[in-house]
């Protein structure tokens, strides 16, 4: 496993896709700030209270960990392509021939994909948050503990990208082809977005335990609650927020494990060409 991780990290380090992902992680925050500044300038929103409420740092920060937004959609696709290239180059075959267990090959890819996804999104998030706080007004509800909320927010972000890495790795090693991996990864993100959007419109309390089974719901909940001006669910107490956070994390863990088990099962059984 250790030697496979070494090989996969070396491959990742040498991959052009890593370089492109890092460039995008720097470019997207700059573009976002430019876009928001442009909109604010055109709408003459600077110094305007309504403008500050609509297009502020909260809005920008609230979406940094969304995997249906900007880089969030690109990163899992890149992770999937990197895994697919290992198969199409035949280097994955070399690993099996050299006596590595298929489960180790799979898990090594999963770990590298997770670290790739989390690493790139964290870089993107840091830059975006920094620029947003510099250029736009930020509002905070003083009744909420900033440190706890930031911790929830960051942990959710990291967990959601670790989760989506389990999806892209599973798809890449099941399809073993770049095109279907890209399409289904994007579709997967979109379907989750649609689910979340629909659920957010429903009074969530009666179906609370069902909605928490759906990954990203929890993340969207926290994003919207803490960093978005809409503040839809701000009436929840700190205690229930902790429960929601834990349930959401468990949801990611549960579905991430399910995806990994499905991927492992299929990958171990299939003949490699």
């Amino acid at each position: 496993m250790k030697r496979l991780l070494k090989a996969d990290f070396y491959h990742l380090r040498k991959s052009r896709l890593t370089l492109i992902a890092l460039i995008l992680a720097v470019a997207f925050p700059l573009l976002t700030v430019l876009l928001f500044s442009g909109i604010r300038a055109i709408g003459e929103l600077d110094g305007n209270e309504a403008g500050d409420l609509l297009l502020n740092a909260n809005y920008v920060i609230g979406s940094v960990f969304s995997f249906t937004n900007n880089l969030g959609l690109v990163i899992p696709v890149f992770a999937g392509i990197i895994v697919c290239l290992d198969y199409s180059n035949g280097t994955l075959r070399n690993k099996v021939i050299a006596g590595n267990r298929r489960s180790s090959v799979y898990l090594s890819h999963l770990i590298v994909s997770m670290l790739f996804c989390v690493g790139v999104i964290v870089l993107y998030a840091i830059l975006t948050v920094a620029l947003a706080l510099i250029f736009f007004p930020f509002h905070w509800d003083p009744s909420l503990n900033l440190g706890t909320e930031v911790l929830y927010f960051v942990l959710y972000g990291i967990m959601s990208f670790a989760f989506i890495a389990t999806v892209s790795t599973m798809l890449a090693l099941i399809f073993r082809s770049i095109a279907p991996t890209i399409i289904v990864t994007i579709l997967f993100s979109m379907v989750l977005l649609i689910f979340n959007s629909v659920i957010m419109l429903i009074d969530y309390e009666p179906i609370r335990y069902i909605v928490y089974l759906i990954p990203t719901f929890g993340a969207n909940f926290f994003n919207l609650n803490d960093f978005n001006i809409l503040g839809i669910l701000s009436q929840t107490t700190d205690a229930s927020r902790g429960v929601i956070f834990a349930e959401g994390m468990l949801s990611y863990l549960f579905f991430g494990t399910i995806h990994t088990l499905i991927g492992l099962l299929v990958f171990r059984k299939r003949d490699l060409r």
Binding site: H11, N89, G90, N94
Partner: peptide, 9 residues
């Protein structure tokens, strides 16, 4: 097996 397999990049 069949062809030599390696990373082309």
């Amino acid at each position: 097996v069949e062809t030599a397999t390696m990373s082309r990049s």
